[in-house]
Nucleic acid binder design. Sequence first.
DNA 1: ACGCGGATGGCCT
DNA 2: GGCCATCCGCGTA
Length: 203
Amino acid sequence: MREHEGAPLPSSFYLRDAALVARDLLGAVLQHEDVAGTLSGRIVETEAYLGPHDPASHSVVGRTARTWHMFGPPGTAYVYFIYGMHWCVNAVTGAEGVGSAVLIRALTPLSGLEVMRQRRGTARRLSSLCDGPGKLCAALGITRAHDGLLLTGSSSLTILAGTPVPDDEVLIGPRVGISKAVDWPLRFRVRSPHASGDQRVTR
DNA sequence: ACGCGGATGGCCT
DNA sequence: GGCCATCCGCGTA
C-alpha cells in the first residue's frame, strides 16, 4: 500500500523560505526504510522555524552540538531530543548556514501500520499513531541516528512527492508548545486528510 | 471534553 | 537550577 509514493523531493524544493516549504510539505510522504520494513505516512501538519531572528527557533542559540545540523544544507534532517523522552524531526530549509527548518508534526499512516502499532503500544486507534511530532518519530523509529541525514534520497529517511493539497484545505495558525513568538502564523495543517479514519489532526 | 501534572534527560545560565 | 518545538493518564464534568 504505497500508492502515494513518488520521487524524493530534491534539494531545490527546500532551498526556499521555511514557511513556503512548510506549506508545500503537506501531502508529501515521509518514509523510513527501517530494519523492520518500510514505514511511511502522509504529512498533514507542519511548523516553520525561520532562523536565528525567530525567537522560537532552536537556531537562536547559534550552531551548538545540538543545533548543528539545523544549519546544514537544504533537505537535511534535523532530529532533536526533547523533554527527556521524545524525538522530533525537521527538514532543513534555505541555504546552508541559515538555520531554518520545518518541524513535521503529524502524519496519516500509509505503510508499516503493524510495526507502528507495536511501537506505539497496543489497542491504539489509527488516528493516534502519528498525530504528534514525538509520536511519529516513535512510530517510524526516527532517533538521533537520523540527525544530519539527507532527506533527498541518499539515506534511509526520505521525503517523497505526494498528493498536492489545495489552498482551501490548508489551515494556518500559531505554532504550539512554544513560549516566544506565540502568535506567528507558521503552523500548517490539512483540514481534511483524505485517508479514512483520520479526523482530528487538531493538535 | 476538557485541564492538570508527572515522567525524564540533555543543554544552557 | 531551570527550561524545554511532548505525551499520557487521571481527575472533574
